[in-house]
Simulated assay, not measured.
Amino acid sequence: MTKILVHSGFHKTGTTSVQKMLVHNRASLEHHLRILTKPDMIAACQAARAFSVRRHPADLTEFASEIAAVFEDVDPSDPRPLVLSSEDLSGHMPGRRGLKTYDAAPALMKAIADTALAVFKDAPDLTFFFSTRSADSWLRSCYAQHLRAIRMTLDFEDYRTQYAQSADLDAIVDDVRKAVAPNTVVSTPLEEAGSRPIGPLAAVMDALEMPGRTRRGLHVLPPANVSMPEELLSAMLEANRSNLSNAEVSKAKSEARRIWLTGDL
């Protein structure tokens, strides 16, 4: 029986740190795990994001097809657990493309579960793992990401009001649990996992029931995508609200971030 862990969210809950740690420590972990991150399943992630926006059955079918292609490359005789880690498997982050929540995630996770049953001769031992985060902290982190990546023009208070529903990550986890039953669904808050010796990766290791000896000796990386100061966020908001072209806004935000990273802001 193939053991599979799907770590599919959520954005801004330590997922990038987990993936960087998995890739950075691949040489040590590959004796115990098979690891796939976003670069290993780009088409599946693209299909998941497309479905989250359009909700067209054809997009869900395309997603299932791409996940099938991922699973068909898996050797069922290999005893090592398989880890799929990409927050994009749950679709776009709320705030992008008009999305207010992760309500596409249950259908996407069910497609993964159904596809796994269809591809593997023996039903796999399938677990869905989600990292979560307290509402206000998560909204602030998402807002900063939007300021940086897109032309978000809302101030934080307006953003928090409009997207408050998106922060109920536990409700999405509950919906996933119903959608993929009887498969296992677990979640761990970033506030709990982030304080552990190997950071958010510890929660993934727990979900895989990896023994302590597998964790010892891992090289711990600093947190990825750390929070930005208010001065930098204000500069990015000002650029987004300006009359500059999109290219000029992007350049201005990159320059502001460069100045911050060099300590001159």
Score class of each variant (00 low, 15 high):
173 V>E: 08
239 A>H: 02
199 G>N: 03
245 S>E: 06
191 E>I: 00
26 R>C: 02
209 E>Q: 12
152 M>P: 07
48 A>N: 07
265 L>R: 05
57 P>C: 09
131 S>E: 06
263 G>L: 04
207 A>Y: 12
90 S>E: 11
262 T>L: 13
177 R>G: 01
255 E>W: 01
188 T>N: 10
52 S>T: 03
238 E>T: 15
190 L>A: 02
140 R>N: 14
36 L>C: 11
236 M>R: 06
36 L>Q: 09
102 Y>G: 01
61 T>W: 04
241 R>A: 00
265 L>A: 07
159 Y>R: 04
64 A>L: 14
132 T>P: 12
111 A>Q: 07
115 T>D: 08
222 P>R: 05
6 V>Y: 13
234 S>V: 10
170 D>F: 09
153 T>C: 02
188 T>A: 12
6 V>S: 09
135 A>R: 13
128 F>R: 02
31 H>E: 11
2 T>V: 02
120 F>V: 01
229 P>E: 03
74 V>G: 04
49 R>Q: 15
178 K>F: 13
227 S>T: 14
124 P>G: 00
188 T>K: 12
29 L>S: 01
37 T>P: 03
251 K>F: 09
151 R>H: 14
205 M>F: 07
38 K>M: 14
169 L>N: 01
38 K>D: 14
170 D>K: 12
249 V>K: 11
137 S>Q: 07
7 H>D: 05
139 L>V: 00
40 D>C: 02
24 H>L: 07
134 S>R: 12
166 S>K: 04
96 R>I: 13
235 A>I: 09
240 N>E: 02
66 E>T: 12
221 L>A: 04
242 S>M: 06
200 P>A: 00
177 R>K: 11
93 M>H: 08
13 T>G: 05
181 A>Y: 15
6 V>T: 03
105 A>S: 09
52 S>D: 14
12 K>Y: 01
124 P>K: 02
196 R>K: 08
239 A>F: 02
213 R>M: 08
99 L>S: 06
37 T>A: 06
253 K>T: 11
89 L>S: 06
75 D>H: 09
138 W>H: 04
217 G>H: 03
245 S>I: 00
30 E>S: 13
190 L>T: 00
62 E>A: 15
166 S>I: 03
187 S>L: 10
43 A>F: 10
214 T>V: 15
18 V>L: 05
190 L>E: 03
195 S>R: 14
140 R>S: 11
58 A>D: 15
170 D>W: 06
176 V>S: 00
115 T>H: 03
235 A>T: 14
191 E>C: 04
81 P>S: 01
1 M>Q: 04
169 L>P: 10
94 P>N: 11
211 P>E: 10
39 P>E: 05
260 W>M: 11
224 A>S: 08
207 A>L: 05
180 V>D: 03
73 D>N: 13
105 A>K: 13
186 V>F: 09
68 A>L: 05
191 E>Q: 08
189 P>S: 02
22 L>P: 00
127 T>H: 13
73 D>Q: 13
42 I>T: 14
104 A>N: 08
134 S>Q: 14
263 G>E: 05
73 D>W: 09
58 A>K: 11
247 A>Q: 13
90 S>K: 14
148 R>N: 15
166 S>G: 15
196 R>V: 04
61 T>K: 13
